[in-house]
């Protein structure tokens, strides 16, 4: 298309003389190509395709009625400064000798292991479903519905995430992320109470943690 009517360079040489009074209209396209690629490079480098990802959070509307959770299903996690995570099962025992409270971190062998161990009911129920989906015997919508039902079941683990006054935002996000990874759908995000702070202080004192 660009080489419009060049008249032919080779084989038709003889015929050219007869009809070619027209000048060959060959346009040098190099500058245009240069410009084209310059613009292309510029827009490619400035475009950002990936939108940031989000964690959806729906905090409960504040009410005064409290729901009691079965001790065996409750896991309380207290986030503190320096990436420290304290946790205890069931109810807080305010007896310092009970060794109710424990300390862990955000590594794979840390809080995730604790949650996964406690969340075995959901994980066991989910395992066959995962298999079926992987072998493509189950559509995503069916899977999601079934998963939601299992995660919301009354035997599912309930995690209470508490934060003290020096907790960092990054730890809260990490914890919400763990909920996602460990298939925990039932969790609440609240402030640490005074007895918990005292027990943590006590724990730190006992184990010489600053």
């Amino acid at each position: 298309m660009a080489d419009v009517n060049t008249g032919g360079d080779g084989g038709h040489g003889r015929h050219q003389k007869k009809r070619a009074k027209k000048l060959p209209t060959r346009i040098d396209m190099t500058p245009m190509v240069d410009l084209g690629f310059l613009l292309l490079t510029f827009f490619m480098l400035t475009t950002t395709f990936s939108k940031p990802k989000v964690i959806e959070l729906t905090p409960p509307v504040k009410t005064n009625d409290s729901t009691k959770i079965k001790d065996t299903l409750a896991l309380t996690v207290v986030l503190s400064g320096n990436n420290k995570v304290y946790y205890y099962n069931g109810e807080l025992k305010q007896d310092p000798d009970s060794n109710n409270i424990n300390l862990t971190d955000f590594s794979d062998n840390g809080i995730r292991k604790v949650i996964l161990a406690r969340n075995s009911y959901v994980l066991n129920q989910l395992a066959p479903l995962d298999q079926q989906r992987q072998s493509q015997h189950m559509s995503d919508t069916v899977y999601d519905k079934a998963k939601q039902k299992i995660q919301g079941s009354k035997y599912a683990l309930f995690v209470i995430i508490k934060t003290d006054s020096i907790a960092k935002y990054v730890n809260v996000v990490a914890m919400l992320d763990e909920m996602n990874i460990c298939n925990v759908d039932k969790y609440a995000l609240i402030d640490a109470s005074k007895p918990e702070e005292l027990m943590i202080e006590d724990y730190n004192h006992k184990h010489n943690i600053k």
């Binding site: 990936s50 990802k53 959806e56 959070l57 729906t58 905090p59 504040k62």
Partner: peptide, 19 residues
């Protein structure tokens, strides 16, 4: 900040994270 938004009647929040 979330409390202030909740008082204004906002119930859902998106916490922006990178992948």
């Amino acid at each position: 900040v979330i409390d202030i938004c909740q008082k204004a009647g906002i119930q859902h929040f998106d916490l922006i994270t990178s992948m």
